[in-house]
Amino acid sequence: MIRLVDVHKSFGSNHVLSGVNLEVAQGQSMVIIGGSGTGKSVLLKCILGLITPDTGEIYVDGSDVTTTPREAFLAQFGMLFQGGALFDSLPVWQNVAFRLLRGQLKKSKQEAREIAIEKLRRVGLGPNVADLLPAELSGGMQKRVGLARAIATNPKIIFFDEPTTGLDPIMAGVINDLIREIVVDMGATTMTITHDMTSVNTIADQVAMLHGGKVRWVGPRSQVFDSDDAYVRQFVSGSPEGPIETLR
């Protein structure tokens, strides 16, 4: 479904990705873990074509992403950005229904609004927020609106960049269940970046750990918590002692 072959990306002298190889099967939930600044967000943006890798190939559904027509390619994707990235000039419901109000998937205004309100309900937000502006919401609420926007058109492939950061534990649980539901019920292929081990536990089929610009470890969820890789063990236990350097 999604396949990355030896992907490299540097910003100036900052070598963020140096040879990433990764495969995500159709209908699978891949969770990506790794320290802050290891290039997890950059990786997702490379797949979407928002950042062009220096070298390496990326395939989605067997075809090279640099040669597939952009419009059709992007239509199958949903993405929750790390910062929410809501359009602050548009009210919440128009953010969620952005794709339903224009372009190929255009629906009537009434219908688009109903879908938006339904998606907002699924992320735990009532219809009363629909007409507010994003700036009037709390950080966690904005994140959930971003999530509702990502799933609004039931896309085949969905990327979630830290879906539960900034949420209270109960809401985080709701969102984890929702993502799991999307994978199981809708058969979507998802990649989720998270620092939250509860999320790893509920969402993941497979887990990949990014470290030093490469995929350090990849394996099924059942193995991540008793992996014999010292890096993974240190990461999931959150211990300051281990091979991953911490500056203090």
């Binding site: 419009e71 992007l74 993405m79 990235a85 359009f87 602050d88 794709r99 372009g103 926007r149």
Partner: peptide, 16 residues
């Protein structure tokens, strides 16, 4: 501001 808050990226991914 749209650029630094990833809104431009979001536009692109929403096929706009």
């Amino acid at each position: 501001t749209m650029k630094v808050t990833e809104q431009i990226d979001a536009l692109v991914t929403l096929s706009t």
